[in-house]
Structure formats: C-alpha cells, structure tokens
C-alpha cells in the first residue's frame, strides 16, 4: 500500500478530484494547508502591483492506493494539478504498513 500526498493550488482541487475519480479512486482526504516551496518569499507581480506572500494557501490531498496504482495516480494528479506556473505544488509517495477500515475491520487491499 502507498500513501500519495499532494499539496496543490486550491483551485486545482476539483480538477484533481475529477481526474483521480475517473481513474477509479473512490476516496480522498482533503485539508486546508499553507506553505511555500521554492517560491519562498516570492514577489508576485499582478498587473503592475507587487504582493509579498510568505505562506501561500494550498490544499493537501491524501490518497491511500495499491502499490501498483501509485505511479499512475501520481501522473494523473500531476497532470491535472499543473498550471506550469511557480507554486503548483508537490506530490510524494510513502509506504504504508497497514490500512484498516474502521467500520468493518477490513485490512489493507480490502480497506482501500
């Protein structure tokens, strides 16, 4: 099992959700998040005005998937979250030891 974590721009959430749902993913956890990456302290120019933003609002999406699906789903997320501009976010994958569905006690593949 793998945990895919994606930190993306808030307005891309709906596109990501639709794309992974189309892939067959049935659930996700979404959290409001704030952060920065390489654009740390970047000055964004908007119609001649400058804004200094330290922590930028993002959403954090977490999905637990089968090992074999992880790479494809990461691709789907990256493609659907991409605007090509700085601050598009990150996606990373971590190994998951066990998953249990609380209601039934099902484990691992049955619980995803």
């Amino acid at each position: 099992m793998r945990l895919i974590t994606a930190v993306i721009k808030p307005h891309k959430l709906e596109d990501v959700r639709a794309a992974v749902e189309a892939f067959g993913v049935t659930g996700m956890t979404v959290t409001e998040a704030s952060g920065y990456g390489r654009q740390k302290g970047h000055t964004e120019v908007y119609r001649g005005a400058e804004y200094d933003i330290a922590l930028v609002p993002k959403v954090r999406v977490e999905i637990v998937v089968e090992d074999g699906d992880a790479a494809d789903i990461v691709d789907v997320i990256v493609k659907s979250a991409q605007t090509g501009r700085i601050g598009d976010g990150k996606v990373w994958v971590t190994a998951v030891e066990t998953v249990v569905r609380v209601r039934t006690g099902d484990r691992d593949s049955d619980a995803v």
Binding site: P10, E32, A33, S34, Y46, R47, A49, Y51, L55, P57
Partner: peptide, 22 residues
C-alpha cells in the same frame, strides 16, 4: 473562517478592488 480561507478571500478582494480601481 479559517486563516486559510480569509487569506484567499482577502487576496481576491484586493485584486478585484485593484481591477475596479484601475
């Protein structure tokens, strides 16, 4: 009304205001 939401709304208001102002 989390700080996250407020930050996004404030940014939108600021930009919309600038748009109207300009």
């Amino acid at each position: 009304w989390s700080p996250w939401r407020k930050q996004l709304v404030d940014a939108l208001v600021e930009r919309s205001k600038r748009h109207l102002h300009l």
